[in-house]
Design a protein around this nucleic acid. Sequence first.
DNA 1: GATAGCGGCTAGTACCACTATCCATACTTC
DNA 2: GAAGTATGGATAGTGGTACTAGCCGCTATC
Lengths: 210, 210
Amino acid sequence: MRIGELSRRTGVSVPTIKFYVREGLLPAGELTSPNQASYGETHVQRLRLIRALLDVGGLSVAGIRDVIVAVDDPERPVHKVLGVAANRIVPRYDRDPDAGIEEARKTVAELIAVRGWQASPDNPAGEALATALAALEDVGHGGFAEVLDAYADAAERVARADLEYVAHHVAREELVESVVVGTVLGDAIFGAMRRLAHVDASNHVFGRAT
Amino acid sequence: MRIGELSRRTGVSVPTIKFYVREGLLPAGELTSPNQASYGETHVQRLRLIRALLDVGGLSVAGIRDVIVAVDDPERPVHKVLGVAANRIVPRYDRDPDAGIEEARKTVAELIAVRGWQASPDNPAGEALATALAALEDVGHGGFAEVLDAYADAAERVARADLEYVAHHVAREELVESVVVGTVLGDAIFGAMRRLAHVDASNHVFGRAT
DNA sequence: GATAGCGGCTAGTACCACTATCCATACTTC
DNA sequence: GAAGTATGGATAGTGGTACTAGCCGCTATC
């Protein structure tokens, strides 16, 4: 198919497709003559992935490129690809290291220890958690830490379900892609569900609301 | 205190503080002379809230303004304020209405019915959920829907904990602020925990990884 | 053989979150 | 009380991001 049809089938404009190719998010079409190229189903799939990661997942174009380059590199071992993906997916908050974040890091380390999680507290997710907890403390909602256990229970439940889903995929590309998709879209899905559950819970508590 | 000290105490530069005042995120200091104003603890608090919402919560300046204006308007009933907050907090994905999203909306409505949630499926959170599910379908991971039940269990657990925390706050401003903070930072916290739990779970399944 | 579409290119746009600079005045320090 | 720094208020500019517009020479298609 040619670029016009690719555009129609995905709802992405032709100039934007060209832009994604330039940015390395999408492989160029196969040239059939000096100025004519043909695109296939893989391009349609890739474009849908890009749009989902951009619109729903909130990743940046640069972040998507890093993930895609890692996924497409057959030399790279799976766990390295997942590492790159994790680094791009987890938002990086920069915060000048003060007393607050050190305290929060300790909380995170304790949580991991109590839960018996096999995870190092200084990986990006642990850092992100510490930053968020420190921010909570800063805004005077340190008491929110009370609910951390409930969050951890829920996170374990979700993570188990995620892994079960991912376990169905044996092929490398499928595995990596489902981890990326699941992580990014899973956040959006869980967030939306949490808000629905809030509405329900607050209707129970306050009678009726929005 | 004067603006310089406010800046030192919050780590936000003086020009940026001026910018927030112009944008209506932060009330102006109280003028003590034509070109001298004094700021108090409320300004420190408000600035910390702004930074947390921006850096960790990922809200836009315009979104924060809408939330803050609603919170600061004493005329507005609590449930309306929470509505505004929900609308700003939940990211709005625009997607041309196609067959996919209709299907996803049905899934959402069913989920709500099965769970017995007192929530309308056409509120922003329900729409966001439908969009995310449709995106999942688009990228060929429709099978992910299998795990929705686990997600819903977890969301209920988290929402219950959130409400318990919020129930401690009786004063209106405190109530609204804790809902906003809890919703926004809670997403970040849960996301980070989910990733930690993934690391743990995948260590159990695959032996060891990143 | 007209005309619409194409690949490849450079340049431009709109928005966002600041940042720089300026001015007249006020506070601070010597 | 002079010198130097800080302040409030204003306008203009910056750098980053995600596109978008326009052009050229060529080609598929009717």
